[in-house]
Design a protein around this nucleic acid. Structure first.
Length: 178
DNA sequence: GCTATGATCATA
DNA sequence: ATGATCATAGCA
C-alpha cells in the first residue's frame, strides 16, 4: 500500500472555500484512528456573521487569524468539541469545520457530525492550535485521484448568514450527517 | 463580577 | 421539542 503524503502548509494557505472543497476525500488521523472527510463547512472572515471570527481576534479566535495549517478546536454546549482546519494567510480569518468522516481505522464510533468525530478521534481542546504538518493530528493526501461528486448547501446549525452555501459534502455518501 | 448564548446530540 | 452543561464573550 502506497504511503500517503501529509498535506503541505501551502494547501491551507488559500481561500477557505477552496480548502473546504479540496479537503473532501482526504484522510484525517489522530491517536491511531482515522477517517475520510466526507462533509465540511467553510467559515470566512469578513461578512460572515456566523463565523466565530466575525468579531475579530479574541483569546478563542486567535488561532483562526494565525498561520494556516493549524487546528482550531472549540468547546460548545458544555459537552462537545468541534474541529476546524485553519485556512488563509496569517492575519486573515478563515477555517473549515470538519462535519463528518467515514471511519477508516481504529474506531467504530459514529463520525457523522462535528462533535461525534472529535469524540471518535479523541480530539479535545488539548489539540487546539496543533500544527497539522508536524503534530499528532495529520491530514493526508488522497490515495488515488478519483473524481468526487461534490454537493453544496447552506451550513447547519447557524442563525446568521444562512444564505451562504458554504457546506460541501460527497453526494450520496452514507456517512454525511443528518 | 455576572449573564446569555451556542458551528451539537440524544432522547421523547 | 427539550435538556444536558460550561467555555467564551460582552458588559457592568
Amino acid at each position: 500500500m502506497k504511503r500517503q503524503k501529509v498535506l503541505p502548509r501551502s494547501f491551507y494557505a488559500r481561500p477557505a472555500v477552496k480548502v473546504a472543497r479540496d479537503l473532501l476525500g482526504k484522510t484525517i488521523e489522530h491517536a491511531g484512528r482515522s477517517g475520510r472527510i466526507v462533509e465540511v463547512e467553510a467559515y470566512l472572515g469578513e461578512g460572515d456573521e456566523a463565523a466565530h471570527s466575525a468579531r475579530g481576534i479574541t483569546p478563542r479566535t486567535r488561532v483562526i487569524f494565525g498561520p494556516p495549517g493549524h487546528a482550531y478546536v472549540y468547546f460548545i454546549y458544555g459537552m462537545h468539541y468541534c474541529l476546524n482546519l485553519v485556512a488563509e494567510r496569517e492575519g486573515k480569518a478563515g477555517c473549515v469545520l470538519i462535519r463528518a468522516l467515514e471511519p477508516l481505522r481504529g474506531t467504530r464510533m459514529p463520525c457523522n457530525g462535528p462533535a461525534r468525530l472529535t469524540r471518535a478521534l479523541g480530539i479535545t481542546l488539548e489539540q487546539n492550535g496543533a500544527d497539522l504538518t508536524r503534530g499528532d493530528i495529520r491530514v493526508l493526501e488522497n490515495e488515488n485521484g478519483e473524481a468526487l461528486l461534490i454537493r453544496t448547501s447552506p451550513r447547519i446549525g447557524i442563525s446568521k448568514s444562512t444564505d451562504l452555501r458554504l457546506r460541501f459534502f460527497l453526494a450520496g455518501n452514507p456517512f454525511v450527517s443528518r
